[in-house]
Each structure stands twice: as structure tokens, then as C-alpha cells.
Amino acid sequence: MALDNNELGASGETTRVPSRSVSDHELIEKVRHGDESAFGEIMARYKNPITNFLYRFLNDYEEAVDLAQETFVRVYFAIDRYHTNYAFSTYIYRIASNLAISELRKRKRRSILSLTGLFQTDEDNAIEFQPPDSRPLADSDLVEDEKSRTIAKAIATLPPKYRIPIILRDVEGRSYEDVATLMRLGLGTTKSRISRGRGLLKEKLADYMSSD
């Protein structure tokens, strides 16, 4: 079943970080020596993948952007503590994951506090973010939007221990090894979780599977 990166991004769009002439580690070193433009380059490389990752995790665009910005702030202030033993991408995704999990916990606390139902959970009101498009929608676009919303909502309802590896693997196109390193899990456990997560999604996306 092993999906390699080339199979991802069926729509032709991908959020994977493109390879650059200057490596991430070289940029980090420049930032450590006070080169602010190098940090700008890091942001340019990772702002879209991190925002997309957080958006798929939280299913809330505004929150995803806030946490993506917070991720870069944390990277900046902890840049001296970063060790090049790990790939930088693993490092930054781990920070983003931790922030996302913290946000989920906050949401859970808020939903517990909202005993009267004054505050509905975000999952209940989740709306798929779509970039503005002034063109009139064709029927096929409407169907596609509904499908996207359903898939996004299904992902957002997965338990975090399945949600993170699924997003990293199937949305971000990270390798199993990367996902295992990022989650500090064994390769077997990581594959098992991804498989289990897909199994949970299968039940929720049965309608779209029959048509694919």
C-alpha cells in the first residue's frame, strides 16, 4: 500500500516544501548570526505547509493562521536550542502539532464550561474554508465543495493520535519515517495508526468511496 510522495496531490496542488539551493540548516545558521532575511526565507518556505497542516487539524482557518504565526515566533526564539540532528521540517511540524493539541485541549475545556450551550463547539459549526472566487459555481463545483467539507469535517473528528499522522502523511505528503520521527513513535506504530485512521474515515466517507 505504500504510497510514495509522487502519488499525492491528485489535484495537482501540493503543500510540500520544495527543495531549495540553500538548505534549512544553512538558513538556521544565518538566522543565528542575525540574518533576518534568512528567517524570512524560512517563513516563505513553511508558512503555507504549516498553515495547511494546522487548518486540516483544526478545521478553522483563522485559528490555523494564528497558530502558524505562533509556530514561527516559537521557532525564532528557540532557534539557538534547535539541533540539526533532526530535519528542520520535522522540528517545525512538531511545534505546530504541539500547539494544535494544546488548542484542542482549550476547546475541550471551553465546551465543558459551556453547560448552557451558549458556546457551541467549533466542530459543530465547522465550515470548510474556501478562497474567494467570484465566478458563478457550476454544479460540479458545488458537489466538489460539499465533498471537501465532508472530508475536512471527517478528518477533524478523528482523535488527535490518528489525525496528526493522517494529515502529515496524506495531506502533507510526509514519509512514514518522517511521521514516525515527528511523533516520536516507532515505524510500525505509525503505520498502524495511519491505517487505523483511514479505517475510521472509511466509515464516514463511504458515499464518496463508492463513487471513486
Binding site: L3, A10, S11, M43, A68, Q130, V171
Partner: peptide, 25 residues
Amino acid sequence: QEEQISRLIAGLRPVEAPEGFEGMV
């Protein structure tokens, strides 16, 4: 079935960071 699920997820349109993202950071 797993591959179908994987393709469905991968087919989601990626979102991008808004303009001014770097300035906010």
C-alpha cells in the same frame, strides 16, 4: 480502500497563509 481514502484526503485543496503573514510574525 485505504488508497481511496488517501487519495480523497490528498485531493483536498490546500489553503495558503494570508497576505501579511510574515509581517504579523
